[in-house]
Design a protein around this nucleic acid. Structure first.
Lengths: 215, 215
DNA sequence: CGTGGTGTTGATTACTTTCAAGATGTGTGG
DNA sequence: CCACACATCTTGAAAGTAATCAACACCACG
């Protein structure tokens, strides 16, 4: 199983545009933990304290309503860090979307990580606030367009974009149903804006059109 | 004009449950700046660098789409701090909602404020992510209920809640139109959940019902 | 080569927005 | 202190968008 994981590292971990993962000074570095698709990394209510860095694969961060409605607040791809919280408790769930390797940094209590964490927290804050604009004020096609642009940019701005997550995940990230996401993909395909290479891989044919839609 | 401002301080600045405003170590404290209703505190694209603390009044943080659609990502009430950014540029607009006093802290370049800023950034991040759940997955009545609960809790959990902002602001915060906000207020009134003391002041009659709606 | 999970498409329903008119409130000047 | 005027808020009717319900297609896995 671990051999499979290492193979994946070669294949799809750090994209060329991205610098290798920084290491956290002062933190105890642990070996890479492997999570199969759908596995929980931490749960809401659990005690927080560690930092997590995606080595390969992808992670979804989400919250649930009592009746099961789910909102994914963020996806984290290879090289990105997550898991820091305002207090000692996790306010969200974190799950591996696919087979995922995560490096865990345990921060010794008393150690001050604020200098390293602040830029990450601020980046996350800006991203969340931009996402608020999408959910609050954009319609279905604009939301999907914004999502595709975001994923493209996070993968180096290439024409070909990998979508490691399912349509359900995309819907729960954009505040839409799976059916609506699917219909929008079809409309974008018909308009010649994108092309589906496979279910989880699209090619952007008209970047300008996509940018104009997502603002 | 400034006399009027000081009068307001007595009236409505720090609620009893809230500790007095902390001061930022190492930052240059400036006198309180006064902003009349609707005045811009900073604009998107401007150079950032200062921290702002609300002395009295209220502030809205928002972003605009090209066609004028607006999403308010946060309201800041007396005692709260805003204005920190991931890079040196403001990504949002900040405006006074009412006559507002703001204390500006200029941080000397080279000074490391991360230890003081990280808790604020993390708090903001958690709040933004919770807001994502509301915008992405809750309907109009649930959104308004969640908003009223949030405002109540931020004002000490009292029955009477002051809403310093207009219906338009509430709509742009919740991703709804002003008409929908108004209709929901009416429905909550008819159900006996709230009572309107005035346009900008409500009384919560059935807190449990409100909590159940907003989750 | 089935089989269950995931995705697509169609028809209908439900909710929110839009458009429109009227009511209420606030601030100003007489 | 009252009256007018403008802004804000409320309410109603019609339209539009996304959700829901349902059936089928596709893909990956054992």
């Amino acid at each position: 199983m671990y051999a499979q994981a290492s193979a994946k590292i070669e294949l799809s971990s750090y994209p060329p545009h991205q610098s290798p993962a920084p290491v956290f000074e002062g933190a105890t570095t642990q070996p890479v933990s492997f999570f199969p698709a759908g596995a929980e990394i931490y749960a809401q209510g659990e005690k927080a304290g560690a930092l997590y860095q995606v080595e390969f694969g992808a992670v979804r961060i989400y919250r649930l309503l009592a009746d099961g409605r789910r909102q994914i607040s963020a996806f984290h791809l290879a090289g990105e860090t997550f898991g820091f919280e305002a207090d000692t408790t996790h306010h969200f769930f974190a799950e591996a979307i696919n087979a995922t390797g995560v490096r865990v940094f345990r921060t010794p209590s008393g150690m001050d990580m604020s200098r390293q964490l602040l830029p990450l927290a601020l980046k996350g804050l800006t991203r969340a606030q931009e996402h608020l604009l999408v959910l609050g004020r954009q319609n279905a096609i604009e939301r999907v367009a914004a999502f595709l642009v975001e994923m493209s940019e996070r993968q180096g701005g290439l024409r070909q974009v990998e979508l490691p997550m399912s349509r359900i995940d995309i819907g729960d990230y954009l505040g839409l149903t799976i059916e609506t996401v699917s219909r929008v993909f079809t409309r974008l395909k018909e308009k010649g804006v994108i092309r589906l290479l496979s279910l989880r891989s699209i090619e952007i044919l008209k970047r300008d059109a996509l940018l104009a839609m997502g603002e």
